[in-house]
């Protein structure tokens, strides 16, 4: 294979038609809009975005499960629509936060069966199964019926299924969703190790955990409402904000102060407001450090007491806020209120 990119998309778009209730009105929802991505071989690429951003939709298209509405995508050099049969043996996919699998089969049988679909000889499959179960700490459950596993353990089995077929391109949709802290850490470490073992391997992973994107991925695309807003290494993304000053201010009860009151101030680029119990935290991205004076003034005139003020290095969260205007947390809680 001489193709340069493991994953390549051009103006990729996806529209869903939604029928609303009994009324026959058909709405359209743009889940992806003109997505252009190029992921070279060997890269661990992250898609970072809030709920509903379009991450899963993109993965479904790339794994031949869903047809795009416009544009094209290639995986391992093959078109996902016209050459799906060439794409499939070369990929695998794991979705986190769901418990799939045949409960009446044992862990080994579930995994063995999928290996069969990929044409892996039984002996080799069994060897890999034992090895991978060891890695995720499920070795002692080899012959447990998978219905007897907890949700998290089932997810680990599912993760093993993804690696089992040694795909050229592996798609992981929120692989650590629902796993405990230790297990998440182990899985992240394993993903990193796996990709470094062989240069031909590529991983595309979606997440809405900042640290996951930041610590794990070589490059990250920030995606919101179906659009890719930025795509670069975490370090480069953060470097964009290097010239700006980022402050975190903790206050007593904000007396009706909200993000909007600060946005009007000259030099304030973005404000995020995290209300708390009897106090509040504001995060500011400022054009320059001096602007913080005006902010403190606004607070004191409203009788709000400062509890803590700190300046810190930019994080991916800040990059997101800078690009979108709101934090991921705000977007997701607004979505919840609407629903």
């Amino acid at each position: 294979m001489s193709q340069q990119f493991s994953i390549e998309t051009q103006d990729l778009g996806r529209v869903y038609k939604i029928r609303e209730g009994k009324k026959k009105s058909v709405k359209t929802l743009v889940a992806l809009h003109d997505v252009n991505l190029q992921v070279p071989r060997g890269e661990l690429f992250g898609l970072l975005g809030p709920n509903g951003a379009g991450k899963t939709t993109l993965i479904k298209i790339l794994t031949t499960l869903l047809a795009p509405s416009s544009g094209w995508a290639r995986v391992s050099g093959y078109d996902v629509v016209r050459e799906a049969a060439q794409v499939r043996p070369r990929i695998n996919m794991v979705s986190g936060g769901e418990s799939s699998g045949y409960g009446l089969l044992t862990v080994r049988e579930n995994l063995w069966m999928f290996a069969q679909f990929y044409g892996i000889p039984s002996a080799e499959a069994n060897r890999r199964i034992r090895e991978l179960l060891q890695v995720v700490g499920l070795a002692d459950r080899l012959n447990t019926k998978s219905s007897d596993l907890s949700t998290g353990l089932r997810q680990k089995m599912n993760i093993v299924r993804g690696f089992l077929t040694d795909p050229q391109v592996l798609f992981l949709d929120e692989p650590t969703l629902g796993l405990d802290v230790g297990a998440s850490r182990d899985v992240r470490a394993f993903i990193r190790r796996w990709i470094e073992q062989e240069r031909a391997r590529t991983v595309l992973l979606t997440t809405h955990y900042m640290i996951e994107a930041d610590e794990l991925c070589d490059r990250v695309a920030i995606i919101n409402q179906g659009r890719v807003l930025a795509c670069d290494s975490p370090a480069n993304l953060k470097r964009r904000l290097q010239r700006e000053a980022i402050f975190q201010i903790e206050t007593s009860s904000p007396n009706g102060l909200s993000a909007r009151d600060f946005e009007a101030l000259p030099g304030v680029r973005q404000v995020a407001h995290h209300p708390g119990d009897g106090k509040a935290t504001f995060e500011f991205i400022l054009d320059a450090e001096e602007v913080v004076g005006a902010i403190i003034n606004t607070m004191t005139t409203k009788g709000v007491r400062l509890l803590n003020l700190s300046k810190r290095e930019p994080t991916l969260e800040d990059v997101f806020v800078d690009l979108v205007g709101r934090s991921m947390e705000e977007i997701e809680s607004a979505d919840k209120e609407m629903a």
């Binding site: 031949t64 499960l65 499939r88 996919m93």
Partner: peptide
Amino acid sequence: HYKTLKYIYTAPT
């Protein structure tokens, strides 16, 4: 029930 259809469909079956 088993939520495996997508994995089977996208496998080289």
